[in-house]
Amino acid sequence: MTSARDIMTPDVTCVGVSETVLEAARKMADLGVGSLPICGNDQRLKGMLTDRDIVVKVLAEGRDPATVTAGELAQGEAVTIGADDTASEILQTMADHQVRRLPVIDGHTLVGIVAVADIARALPDRPVGDLIDAISA
């Protein structure tokens, strides 16, 4: 059975909790991504930061992205998937939480990200179409 480890994108870049949103935005631009995991000083996942978070929670509120930290935008526990969880568990978790990207953890260590695009490349069309319907509702 296909696991998260089989389809994830490894070598994920984190933004640190004390890094500014401006620094995070530059990382996103350099990497060509729309989200980054937020990692603490202990290298544990603290949340996810999206380009939408930056626009809605910082810019639209007139806050200074050079002073707001990524850690300030981390909200509760991030939705994750285990490295050995199956593709069906990934699909179910994404659908239940209406997310397009899931950090993949092995124990407490972030080892990758599974995005809808990763699933589309790895699985037949039908489950992917059902997922898109579920997260777009």
Rank of each mutant, 00 (worst) to 15 (best):
D130R: 15
E89H: 02
D30C: 08
R26D: 12
H108K: 14
A117R: 14
R63G: 01
I90F: 02
V68L: 00
H97W: 04
C39E: 09
N41T: 15
A122H: 12
T9W: 03
A29G: 10
I132P: 04
D64Q: 01
Q75E: 13
V12Y: 04
G129S: 12
I81E: 01
V17C: 10
G62N: 06
V55N: 06
R126W: 12
E89F: 00
A115W: 06
I81T: 08
G107I: 07
P103F: 02
V68Q: 00
A24G: 12
D133A: 14
D106G: 05
M8P: 04
D84Y: 04
T50S: 15
I132F: 00
L22Q: 14
A117C: 05
P65L: 05
A24Y: 06
I81M: 03
P10D: 14
I113Y: 01
D130A: 15
L91M: 03
I132C: 06
T69I: 00
V21H: 06
P124Y: 03
V15K: 05
D130C: 06
H97P: 02
L45Y: 06
I7M: 15
M8Y: 04
M94W: 02
I132N: 09
T86W: 00
I81K: 04
D42R: 09
L59M: 14
G34V: 14
T9V: 11
C39L: 08
A87N: 03
D85C: 02
I119E: 07
P103S: 09
T20E: 07
G16M: 07
S18C: 08
V15Q: 09
V114M: 08
M28W: 03
L131P: 03
L131D: 13
L36S: 11
G76A: 02
R126G: 05
D84A: 13
I132A: 09
V128Q: 11
M8I: 04
V116A: 05
